[in-house]
């Protein structure tokens, strides 16, 4: 808003010309564009979502409920929650540390570190799973030692958590780094000159400045942690009622011709997506407000 005001005062008329130009497309063109957008939106988003829920409820609420309280489905939900409960705090902590040291300090190898943080984005999830098999598998580097000490990593809960942590590694850090960089170090320096300690500065100055961005990153991280399929599929071992997460359970049910149950469980993931979306929109809005207020 502010920059628009400035433009208008400097170039009187510029705003109105722009406005007229933007809205001067013939009605037909406008309708066509809006129509196209809506068409694709409904084709690729709303229709599948509708199909998902209608299939899940095709045999009524009774069946839907039965599919969700079935022991294997419950075990899958529990495992998915456990995974998220371990994965999100870890990546929250790591993301804050990583973005804090890359945004507020300069040191040799900094750009390499930032690139490395992005690695999970560019690697296929299957590969992320396989590297853990190579490291912790029985034929891998640490496998024989782990087995001798009766420690289970792969094909058990720890492996699933590890693979998920790897895949969701960048979400928080990626969100915070640009934000922290944009805010610069002036406020922290001011705090230090006023006698605040390092931790105090961090909790009183740095963290409040990025809280909405942080929340945004956490929401994305959580959504991905609960929805991850590829990497988890490689390390899970697919033991029913033990190492299947919700997305894996959906695949299994579908392959068993158990379509109502498959879509019922899938609808949980869809609901999770919708809730994430709502939260994400809310934090985005808060973030914008915060930035405007701060600028």
């Amino acid at each position: 808003m502010r920059s628009n005001d400035m433009n208008r005062s400097r170039y009187p008329g510029a705003f109105s010309v722009q406005k007229a130009g933007a809205l001067a497309e013939p009605l037909a063109v406008r309708l066509l564009l809006v129509g196209c957008t809506l068409f694709f939106l409904s084709l690729f988003l709303l229709m599948p979502l509708g199909a998902l829920f209608s299939e899940a409820l095709s045999k009524g609420w009774q069946e839907y409920r039965a599919a969700l309280i079935e022991p294997d489905a419950l075990s899958a939900m529990r495992l998915t929650l456990v995974t998220a409960v371990f994965c999100v705090p870890f990546n929250l902590f790591f993301g804050i540390v990583a973005s804090w040291c890359t945004a507020k300090f300069t040191f040799p190898g900094k750009s390499l570190l930032v690139t490395l943080i992005d690695l999970p984005f560019s690697v296929s999830p299957v590969v992320s799973g396989l590297v853990y098999v190579l490291v912790f598998g029985l034929q891998g580097w640490l496998g024989p030692w782990l087995q001798a000490h009766d420690i289970k990593i792969i094909f058990a809960v720890p492996g699933i958590v590890l693979a998920t942590v790897f895949v969701t590694f960048p979400f928080v850090a990626r969100e915070l780094i640009p934000l922290m960089e944009a805010q610069g170090r002036e406020e922290e320096e001011a705090a230090l000159t006023l006698g605040a300690g390092g931790l105090q500065t961090f909790f009183r100055v740095t963290l409040p400045n990025v809280k909405w961005g942080l929340l945004y990153g956490v929401i994305l991280c959580n959504a991905r942690a609960m929805g991850e399929f590829g990497a988890v599929s490689v390390v899970s071992g697919h033991v029913r009622g033990a190492t299947n997460t919700v997305p894996l359970q959906v695949e299994i049910l579908y392959n068993e011709y158990n379509f109502v149950a498959a879509f019922a469980v899938a609808s949980l993931l869809a609901l999770l997506a919708l809730v994430s979306l709502a939260l994400k929109t809310f934090t985005e809005w808060k973030l914008r407000q915060f930035q405007k207020g701060g600028a």
């Binding site: 098999v133 912790f136 598998g137 029985l138 034929q139 891998g140 496998g143 087995q147 792969i154 094909f155 071992g237 697919h238 033991v239 029913r240 009622g241 033990a242 299994i252």
Partner: peptide
């Protein structure tokens, strides 16, 4: 407990632990 998948893939998983 059961685990199902392609036969070769399942053998591989057992080999991997």
């Amino acid at each position: 407990k059961q685990s199902h998948g392609g036969s070769g893939k399942q053998a591989r998983a057992v080999i991997d632990g």
